[in-house]
């Protein structure tokens, strides 16, 4: 099969562009620590909502979604804290979106989701349920309140 020179060039450029895409993706993932959520094996311990303070700026939040609330509903942390969110659902599928921080997870029955995020600026961050979870879905919201200590 004879391939035209210009066609060969186009194929080369295409491959190079895809390479560039993959590289940027990996670069951003490493540099900005922007990864998709981690998965953990199921463990019943995460079905108990709680906030653990590990040290002055490190927190663990066990967030439990249910129709139609997140528990804990208000999470207070100081500026500069790094928070590990562990997420599960007691019933149907829910979403967990902190849009300002690009936290985006699904809460699924019988499964534990996890992500880590650092809150560098004071403010009130909405956690919005963004998966349809029944008639009360549009009212399902929690907040992270980040203050100076």
């Amino acid at each position: 099969m004879k391939i035209d020179k210009s066609e060969k060039r186009v194929v080369g450029i295409t491959l190079a562009l895809i390479g560039l895409f993959v590289f940027s993706l990996l670069y951003a993932k490493g540099k900005y620590k922007s990864d998709v959520p981690e998965c953990l094996p199921y463990d019943k311990a995460y079905e108990e909502p709680k906030i653990n303070k590990l040290d002055s700026t490190t927190y663990q939040v066990f967030s439990v979604a249910s129709m139609w609330q997140f528990q804990p509903a208000e999470i207070y942390v100081p500026v500069g804290s790094e928070v590990d969110f562990y997420l599960t659902s007691k019933d149907v599928v829910h979403g967990f979106n902190i849009a300002q921080k690009n936290v985006n997870m699904m809460a699924v029955h019988g499964a534990i989701n996890k992500t880590t995020v650092k809150f560098n600026k004071p403010g009130v961050y909405d956690i919005v349920c963004h998966e349809y979870c029944g008639v009360g879905h549009q009212n399902m919201r929690a907040q992270v309140i980040v203050n100076y200590p």
Binding site: L25, K29, S34
Partner: peptide
Amino acid sequence: SYSLNTVVHNT
């Protein structure tokens, strides 16, 4: 695009 998806997923 993998982690870019966390910006937009389900919005």
